[in-house]
Design a protein around this nucleic acid. Sequence first.
RNA 1: GGUGAGAUGGGUGAGUGGCUGAAACCAGCAGUUUGCUAAACUGCCGUACGGGAUUACCGUACCGGGGGUUCGAAUCCCCCUCUCACCGCCA
Length: 422
Amino acid sequence: MLTLKLLREDPEYVIRKLAVKHFDAREIVTRINELDGNRRALQTELDACLARQNRIASQIGALMKEGKKEEAEAVKKEVSALKEQSKALEEKSQTNNSELNSLIVLLPNIPCDLVPEGKNSDDNVVVRTGNEIPELGPDALPHWELARNLDIIDFDLGVKLTGAGFPVYKGKGARLQRALINFFLDVNTRAGYLEVEPPVMINEASGFGTGQLPDKEGQMYHATLDNYYLVPTAEVPVTNIYRDVILGNDDFPVKMTAYTPCFRREAGSYGKDVRGLNRLHQFDKVEIVRIEKPENSYAALDDMIAHVEGIVKSLGLPYRILRLCGGDLSFTSAITYDFEVYSAAQGRWLEISSVSNFESYQANRLKLRYRDADGKMQLAHTLNGSSLALPRVVAALLEDNQKDGHIVIPEILRPYTGFDVI
RNA sequence: GGUGAGAUGGGUGAGUGGCUGAAACCAGCAGUUUGCUAAACUGCCGUACGGGAUUACCGUACCGGGGGUUCGAAUCCCCCUCUCACCGCCA
């Protein structure tokens, strides 16, 4: 959520920057500023009215104490007109403010200056690539066939138990999942991220805090009996740890990492995009979350990118890092870098991580603030990134490391898997 | 699932209609004292919004959330949410 202060002080800046996201904000911003003007005028008026009532009330109290009943009764009559007036003002400002609130959440976050122009994913900018794309030859199989042949991932069994998009990992496949999760968590904690294990269901307030609610309600599984949502990402419970928190100036940086299964309804997805592990309703992911002072958040972002890159590099998977263009940037993000690995048998790049700076956009919703060196209250900046999401890592791992129908496990994972080959 | 108790500032916790934005203590901050530490003493010590000469200062709201009674509500009434304890069930 953008702040009213910014919208009031520099509406043209907001409009200009949101155009990078292909969002035409002029009408909304203009209306918001009208409503904000009304809000302030109405409050000034209402406050004055209430102040008079308060003064009279305490006068009555004093008169009653002195036993001057008639005088008190006389003064009481004055109040009723004031009460009506304040009631009317209150209704007016309520109507006004609820329109204001419903409009301000429609504005996406402002992209930062580094965000390139562009309409869609074709316009994303490749900032770096690494590791070699393997030459697999004509017999290379896609991961869903490898997984079936080796009996390590059973998609049909998942359909029986739950439905499409809920695979069952078996044997070395299950062990590989566990190995990857532990490996990622270890690397993250070594880099100073505090490991947390949060609930995988969240309440409405948490969903609102990080922006999943109300906009993306349809993307989450909803346990209606208790009104809980299954987490679409660990970002939600972990960032919400700091909802309604006021940090001290010396409490930074806050670095956390968490493994959770993630649940996404992915309504509207179909076709080859969802084949095999490419897109699932339940998948495993290790997330990193940071809370930073504004002046440090971009250095923190670079640090997170380098961190994630180190992990991908150590797995030996061919990767590239993209800076998302304005048109491809998510609603809440100020800047996002996507990590993709090359799926050799499918001949396509698969997104395995998304590292973003939300600046104060989430913090404003979360009421996540800190007291700066001067003791002034400021909004903190929030950042997060996948480190990493498992399914597509596994897909690439299987495909890129296949040899004679078997999979060669990368060196770095072997202490975790306990085997070299599947 | 049953029964009971409760929700007050960073924490503990007082407060059953006006003198309470809220005692006291703890924590925190600043200062005095002190060879250092400790102790003692003094002062400060919630948030949001609005006004404003934009440090000051003033106003309003907020004691889980919403509504009501009243000139006046943390306090009385109604609804909701959540927490805790005990019983039942249970990994």
